[in-house]
């Protein structure tokens, strides 16, 4: 029982991200509407971003904004500051996700202008003619 509790506390955030990721994955492959597919892709990206940010956490550590003069005099305790690298990577990943969403929405608008619908079946029907 004790072991199970320790396991749950240690892993529950990863399970939450896996569930979130699978919601996005199902929306991407199971839905027939292109906008719903796009929303699924955004959920997928959010799950990945959350997973990376949570991998930077250390117990009892502070944010990665230090006191400059104190650090220059005494140095810094590595275990007392959270890992800043995943934050940087995910900052750029968020911007890429905004760019991807913008381009995808533009292409969806163009598809709607051309075919008059965003449902995959109807587009395939019109393409088959």
């Amino acid at each position: 029982m004790e072991d199970l509790l320790v396991l749950i506390v240690a892993k529950v955030n990863y399970w939450a991200y896996v569930i979130l990721m699978m919601i996005g994955f199902y929306a991407m492959i199971g839905k027939r509407n292109l906008v719903k597919k796009l929303i699924g892709m955004n959920i997928f990206q959010t799950a990945i971003i959350l997973m990376f940010v949570s991998s930077g956490v250390k117990h009892g550590a502070k944010i990665p904004i230090l006191n400059k003069y104190e650090v220059l005099e005494k140095g810094v305790d590595v275990a007392g500051v959270v890992n800043p690298l995943p934050h940087v990577l995910m900052l750029t990943a968020i911007v890429v996700s905004v760019s991807v969403t913008g381009v995808a929405l533009a292409i969806l608008l163009r598809i709607y202008r051309e075919y008059g619908t965003l449902e995959e079946d109807e587009i395939l029907e019109k393409l088959g003619k």
Binding site: K11, N13, S55, G56, V57, K58, H59, A61, N83, L85
Partner: peptide
């Protein structure tokens, strides 16, 4: 690695 582990490979 467990959540918040200071010794995890990423850190």
């Amino acid at each position: 690695p467990a959540w918040g582990d200071p010794q995890d490979p990423a850190a």
